[in-house]
Design a protein around this nucleic acid. Sequence first.
DNA 1: CCTAAATTCCCCACTTTCCCCCACTTAATG
DNA 2: CATTAAGTGGGGGAAAGTGGGGAATTTAGG
Lengths: 155, 155
Amino acid sequence: MYFGTNLVKLDTKGRAAIPARHREGLRNSGGSRVAVTIHPRGEKSLWMYPWDEWEKTAEVVGNLPALNKHYSQIQHILFSNLYELDLDGQGRILLPQKHREHAGLVAGEQIAIIGKGRRLEIWSQQMAQQVEEENMLALQDPDSEVSAEIENLNL
Amino acid sequence: MYFGTNLVKLDTKGRAAIPARHREGLRNSGGSRVAVTIHPRGEKSLWMYPWDEWEKTAEVVGNLPALNKHYSQIQHILFSNLYELDLDGQGRILLPQKHREHAGLVAGEQIAIIGKGRRLEIWSQQMAQQVEEENMLALQDPDSEVSAEIENLNL
DNA sequence: CCTAAATTCCCCACTTTCCCCCACTTAATG
DNA sequence: CATTAAGTGGGGGAAAGTGGGGAATTTAGG
């Protein structure tokens, strides 16, 4: 179960150091392999799973009928942007160019690594901050639909 | 299970270098043979399977009732455009003229090789980009059917 | 059937990218 | 303050991608 936020620097080679507290969890399960893909509904973030966790999902998605247009679109988004990355000896991953662009990650700047339960998310620092503020506002509004749904949760 | 996107150059001789990370999978199974055919429902892409994986697909397709009009059409497209290609010593395949035309692949330009689970797909860079943008939009639209489907996946 | 042209295939060589490893700096711990 | 762990930077070697020469095979035309 991942949680909490860490700011780390994306170095000049495009590598990101995974916070040490998450490394054990990522390593235990499927070697040092992690699955990284982009948020499938347009948010400017990256999703990261321990490999074996991801495999369960991939199995399901991979066996959807490919000639159905909708399934084909889902397969396309989820598979075409998926990469299997390895933690190096220092616990870093090299993020592909395309993914950095998607999430607005610039070499040399700070990025946020955020625990989200089953997965980790990677954001640029600015985006993470911006989205957090937006979420705060949306949830505070007592008239919004969100608000009604939330109130039924047993927290 | 294939995934991820690679851009490679279709060289002046019409050859495409298969990304190294896929080669082992393509070789292990059926020699160095791969099956290449065109997308059966009009997408401007090529389908590529390791040979033995293709045989499973061929089994399914070949046993469809041939006097059913739609099945017959699918069979026709898949089988008549099927080629058995070999990886050369450098892991490249020479794509037949007809297939290059179908997918709009021009010698000397960039093409996208996209993992899609059981198979690889080959696209021109432009087409791949265009399709990805379309899919993204479809998935972001909260009213689209695709969008509803993906919400049900446990990601 | 023979020759010429085009295509395909195999190999070698160059360039670029990536990845592994070592080392330094900064932060946390007792 | 000392010690260990975490985070950061960068060099060098290996591997991947790319280009092209030339032999072998196929195709077409006379």
